Amino acid sequence: MNPKRRRCLQAALLAATVAAVGCDANKPPFKAIDITGADYARTLALSDPNGQPRTLADFKGKVTVVFFGYTQCPDVCPTTMAELAEVKRALGADGAKVQGIFVTIDPERDSPELLKAYVGNFGPDFVGLRGTPDQLKATAKEFKVFYAKVPGKTEGSYTMDHTAGSYVFDTQGRVRLFTRYGSGSKALVDDLKLLLAEA
Rank of each mutant, 00 (worst) to 15 (best):
A32D: 10
D75L: 02
S166W: 01
K60F: 04
K186G: 03
L192S: 08
D39G: 13
A82F: 11
A138L: 12
L195W: 07
A16V: 14
F126I: 05
T71D: 10
V87H: 07
A38Q: 13
K144S: 11
N50M: 04
D170H: 10
H162A: 03
L114R: 15
L91T: 01
I105E: 01
D190F: 02
Q52K: 15
K27V: 09
K31R: 14
F146M: 11
K153R: 14
V21N: 08
G51V: 02
A117H: 11
K186F: 00
T71W: 08
R174H: 15
D39E: 13
S183L: 12
T179D: 12
A96K: 14
D191E: 11
N2K: 13
V103N: 03
F30C: 07
V63C: 03
D48R: 02
R5P: 00
P49T: 10
A16E: 09
L196S: 02
E86W: 04
A15G: 14
A117W: 01
G95R: 05
K149T: 14
L194H: 02
A11S: 12
P74R: 07
G156Q: 08
V63P: 05
A96D: 15
Y147M: 00
G173P: 04
F68K: 08
D75K: 01
G184W: 10
T80Q: 13
F122V: 00
D191Y: 11
E86L: 11
V189T: 14
L177F: 11
R130M: 10
D170S: 11
D125E: 15
T104N: 03
F143R: 05
